[in-house]
Simulated assay, not measured.
Amino acid sequence: MQQFLLFLMAVVAGAMLAVQAGLNSGIGKAVKSPVYGALISFVTGGIALLVYCLVTRVPLGNLRRAFELPWYYWMGGVLGGFYVFAIIVLAPRLGVALTIGLTVAGQMVFSLVIDHYGMMGIPQQSINWLRVAGITLIIGGVVMLRTN
Rank of each mutant, 00 (worst) to 15 (best):
A91I: 07
P123M: 09
Q107T: 12
L69P: 10
R57P: 00
A133R: 07
R131E: 05
M108T: 12
R57E: 01
F85Q: 05
T136A: 12
N128E: 11
G76H: 11
V109S: 03
G141S: 06
E68L: 11
T136F: 02
L90V: 14
L98Y: 02
F110L: 06
L137S: 02
I87P: 11
L130S: 04
L102E: 07
R64W: 15
I122D: 05
G141H: 07
G118D: 09
A86T: 15
W129P: 01
I100C: 00
G101E: 08
I88K: 10
M108A: 14
R93N: 11
I122L: 09
G101Q: 10
Y83K: 08
Y73H: 07
F110K: 00
L98K: 02
L112E: 09
F67G: 05
P70K: 13
G134R: 01
V84E: 00
Q125E: 15
M119V: 05
L79D: 05
G61W: 01
R93Y: 12
G141R: 10
R93G: 13
R64V: 12
V78P: 04
V96Y: 02
G121K: 14
M108S: 09
I122M: 09
M120E: 15
I114L: 11
G80F: 05
N62L: 11
L79K: 03
T99M: 04
G95D: 06
M120Y: 15
G95R: 07
A86F: 15
L63R: 02
Q125W: 14
V84N: 01
R131H: 07
A105C: 11
M120T: 15
L90H: 12
V89M: 01
G106A: 06
T136E: 01
F82E: 04
I100H: 01
V58W: 08
M108K: 07
I87R: 10
V89K: 04
V132P: 04
G118P: 12
L137N: 01
L63M: 08
A133D: 02
L130I: 10
